[in-house]
Design a protein around this nucleic acid. Structure first.
Length: 302
DNA sequence: AATTCGTGGGA
DNA sequence: TTCCCAAGAAT
C-alpha cells in the first residue's frame, strides 16, 4: 500500500494540471467557489466563469452584499443554477456567522447550504490541508478498479466505499492530503470512465481490475433523459430570465405567443413543450426560489 | 433509497 | 445523430 501511495502522489506532482484554485495563494473562498462550480460540471467550462466570479467577488462578503439575481446571472450556463443560489446563501452565512471567514472544519463546512459530504471534505483538504477522506466520482472509480477489481463503482455511493477510502488513506498527514487530490486527478486524467489510459497509469502493475482481465461493468448505467423533460423547460425559462433586463409576462412562458423578435426568447421558441408542462416548470422554479413574481411579471429573485 | 436538478463537448 | 457523463446536494 505504501508503494501505491508513493507512485500516485509522485505521478500527481509530475502530471497535475495547473488550475487557479490550486495555486499556493488560493483562498478558502477561491477553493469553495471552484468546488460549487465543479459539482457535475467539467473543469474546462468552470475555468472562465470562476475567473470572472473571483474577480468580481474576491471575498464571501462581496457576494453576500449583492442580490441572488446577480449570482444566478454570473453563473451563466454552468447548469444547475440552484448551486448559484446556494453559494450565495453560503456566502451570506459565512459573512454573518463566521466573520467572513470560510470555515476550516468539515463539520462547519457541512452545515453550509450546498455543501455535502464531498464538498466539505474537499474544501477542508484542498484549502486548509486537513487529511480528510475525500470521495468523489473520480476517486470512487479509481478505487473500484485499483482495489475492487471492478470496471465501475456502484451506481450510487455506498458506505462501504467510504470505509475503503478511509482504509487505504496514507497515515502520514501530508501524504494523506496529497493522496486525496492525486487520486482524484488520476481519475480525471488517466483512469477515466470511458477508455481509460492504462498505459499511462502509475499503478497499472497494482491494479486489481487489470489483474482480473479488465472485466466489463456488471451493470449498464441508465442515461440521463433530457428532451421533453421539465429540466429542459426550466433551463429555457432560466435562460430567458438571465438574458433579460426586465420582468417577463408569465403568459410568454406559458403559451406559444408570437413572442417578440427579441432573441432573448429563442430558448423558449425552440421549445416544444405543452402548456401544462410549462406551468409545472415555472411553478417549480418559483417554488425553488430561482424565479420570483414581481409587479410586472417573472423576474430573477432579489 | 430513488429522483430531481442544466449544460455542452466528445465518442 | 444519439448517447454518455462531468470535483454532488437535497429531498
Amino acid at each position: 500500500m505504501h508503494e501505491i501511495h508513493e507512485l500516485i502522489n509522485h505521478w500527481y506532482h509530475a502530471n497535475a494540471r495547473t488550475l487557479p484554485w490550486r495555486e499556493p495563494g488560493a483562498s478558502g473562498w477561491a477553493v469553495m467557489v471552484s468546488e460549487f462550480m465543479l459539482q457535475q460540471t467539467p473543469v474546462v467550462r468552470v475555468l472562465p466563469v470562476w475567473e470572472q466570479w473571483m474577480q468580481r467577488w474576491p471575498r464571501p462578503q462581496d457576494l453576500a452584499a449583492e442580490p441572488v439575481s446577480e449570482a444566478i446571472r454570473a453563473w451563466g450556463r454552468l447548469g444547475y443554477p440552484r448551486r448559484a443560489m446556494r453559494l450565495h446563501a453560503a456566502a451570506v452565512e459565512i459573512t454573518t456567522e463566521h466573520n467572513g471567514m470560510v470555515p476550516r472544519t468539515e463539520e462547519q463546512l457541512r452545515a453550509l447550504p450546498g455543501v455535502g459530504d464531498y464538498t466539505a471534505a474537499a474544501i477542508a483538504c484542498f484549502a486548509f490541508d486537513k487529511p480528510t477522506v475525500v470521495v468523489d466520482t473520480n476517486i470512487r472509480r479509481v478505487q473500484a478498479r485499483l482495489f475492487g477489481g471492478a470496471a465501475l463503482p456502484e451506481p450510487s455511493p455506498r458506505a462501504s466505499e467510504f470505509a475503503r477510502a478511509r482504509q487505504v488513506q496514507p497515515e502520514d498527514h501530508e501524504a494523506a492530503v496529497t493522496w486525496n487530490i492525486s487520486v482524484m486527478e488520476l481519475g480525471a486524467l488517466v483512469c477515466t470512465a470511458r477508455s481509460p489510459k492504462c498505459s499511462q497509469c502509475p499503478v497499472f502493475a497494482h491494479c486489481a481490475w487489470v489483474a482480473a482481465g479488465q472485466p466489463a461493468p456488471h451493470y449498464t448505467p441508465k442515461g440521463q433523459a433530457w428532451h421533453g423533460t421539465d429540466r429542459q423547460v426550466r433551463g429555457a425559462i432560466m435562460a430567458v430570465l438571465r438574458a433579460g433586463e426586465q420582468a417577463v409576462d408569465p403568459a410568454v412562458f406559458l403559451a406559444d405567443l408570437a413572442m417578440q423578435q427579441d432573441p432573448v426568447f429563442t430558448p423558449l421558441q425552440k421549445l416544444d413543450a405543452p402548456l401544462q408542462q410549462r406551468q409545472r416548470a415555472l411553478s417549480g422554479l418559483l417554488a425553488d426560489g430561482l424565479a420570483a413574481s414581481g409587479d410586472e411579471g417573472i423576474v430573477l429573485p432579489s
